[in-house]
Amino acid sequence: MHVVDVLSVTRRFGAKTVLKDVTLSVERGEIFGLLGPSGSGKTTLIKLMTGIDKSDEGTVRMLGEQMPKLAMLQRFGYMAQSDALYQELTALENLQFFASLYGLSGSRRKERIQAAMKVVDLLDHLNKPVAAYSGGMKRRLSLAISLLHEPELLILDEPTVGIDPVLRQSIWNELTALKERGTTIILTTHVMDEAEKCDRIGLIRNGELTAVDSPEGLKSASGTDSLEQAFIVLGGGVRA
């Protein structure tokens, strides 16, 4: 069974069509990347998958259930594009809050907070106010929050944007480790070398999904030796 099924989905905002007839499936246990420039519709597609937004045409299924559905919000972990954290509160208070929203309480909550913060290596900074966190620490804290309820599916919107190479490497190590434990990961990116690390990539441009394949598959299909070239060829060539 697919983890996420998107079937001929179209989404319009007013007169503007943001997604045009998109169809794709995400397999269990893979890292699936959505690659495209900003404004191409990646975030909209993510929002449709999570059920935050509703498509105008077509259907979205997550774990077999038709979206949007409130109960499904418990089943995935989500990391938004912006660091949605409460600056005045400490990291611990942020974690406690979100953990409670996912129904965790008592010693189980404490245990999960410790575990999630260990994954992102922030255990020493648990009691610091988030306002004192650096940009990279905030991204890692956001990731820790998405891991709190041990979801089988992780949906990450630009998880490494604005992060230095060392930190990016460490986040990718964490994602790979999660994948090995059986977590399915869907992420968006506009960085080519990051997309190389995904098992499969969906190329998205102007609201259209132009190709879906593994990085190697995309390169050979386009007859190029870099993902950037492949993106240009498969996306309909260079635009003036």
Binding site: T50, L70, A71, Y78, A80, A84, L101, Y102, G103
Partner: peptide
Amino acid sequence: TTGTLERLMATPIR
């Protein structure tokens, strides 16, 4: 505006 509401709405809160 800080995006926390969007994040909040991605949890199972009604």
